[in-house]
């Protein structure tokens, strides 16, 4: 077992690169929101109530006055559907959180989920680790997105600095941690990548994440070694 202080430190170390990637993203989000006429208070409301980067950025792109409420809500649902898959995978690993799971769910992001799954490969996910990661991201997200509404005009072409590449770079590095050999993980990666790229090129919206993930897990099930359940063997004795 690890101590809460050690878990707190591990959480801070783990979350640091994702904060470095999320802050420029949030600054751009704030800047775009200002351009659409949203106030800093509205930005803060959105960042704290929705707290989901991609859907917020797409929402700001779709925003008009008066706000298209139904279209924005449906878009948020579709873009964030991937959370269902993430939650299903993470659930058993944080079962010991008890009622705090409902708070943990509110703070679930791609980053907090990926770092927790990575952590779960080596150690159990403690409350301290999860909430250190998730709350740090939450606070930085609020601060940076509001700062973006105030100072965003100075950050017009962040892609020149390669900052948009921080997010995929983190995920590539984290994905390597799930490698369990070419036979087990290879088919998952190939199926997921091919289907995600194909759907991304042909279907508008965020369906490619769902489609790619489903293709990946289908590949895992199809190529899994045929296991004989131990209980079945005993029952026939």
């Amino acid at each position: 077992m690890t101590t809460p202080l050690a878990d707190f430190r591990a959480g801070l170390v783990a979350v640091f690169p994702t904060v470095a990637a999320a802050v420029p993203f949030a600054l751009i989000l704030g800047q775009q929101a200002t351009a659409k006429g949203l106030t800093p208070a509205e930005m803060l409301a959105m960042s704290s109530i929705v707290f989901a980067g991609s859907s917020q950025l797409i929402a700001v792109g779709l925003w008009s006055m008066p706000a298209p409420v139904a279209a924005l809500a449906l878009m948020a649902l579709l873009v964030n559907l991937r959370h269902v898959l993430m939650g299903a995978s993470l659930s058993g690993k944080i079962a010991h959180f008890g009622r705090l799971r409902f708070v943990a769910a509110f703070l679930l992001t791609d980053e907090a989920w990926a770092l927790s799954e990575r952590r779960a490969l080596d150690k159990p996910i403690s409350r301290t680790f999860y909430f250190t990661v998730a709350l740090t991201l939450f606070v930085c997200w609020q601060v940076a997105s509001v700062l973006g509404t105030l100072f965003g005009a100075y950050l017009e072409h962040p892609e020149t600095f390669g900052l948009d590449f921080a997010f995929p770079a983190i995920f590539i590095a984290l994905a390597l941690g799930f490698w369990k050999g070419a036979r087990r993980t290879g088919p998952v990666l190939v199926a997921s990548a091919v289907v995600a790229v194909a759907v991304h090129a042909t279907v508008p919206g965020a369906w490619y994440v769902i489609a790619g993930a489903l293709a990946g897990i289908a590949a895992a099930v199809v190529t899994a070694p045929h296991e004989v359940p131990a209980s079945a063997g005993e029952a026939t004795r």
């Binding site: 984290l174 799930f178 998952v188 990666l189 997921s192 895992a220 099930v221």
Partner: peptide, 19 residues
């Protein structure tokens, strides 16, 4: 098996179109 394969499958689905 499907749930265990989910983390890498989701990560790669997010990354692949960007890369």
């Amino acid at each position: 098996v499907a749930l265990d394969a989910l983390p890498p499958a989701v990560l790669v689905a997010v990354i692949a179109p960007i890369v």
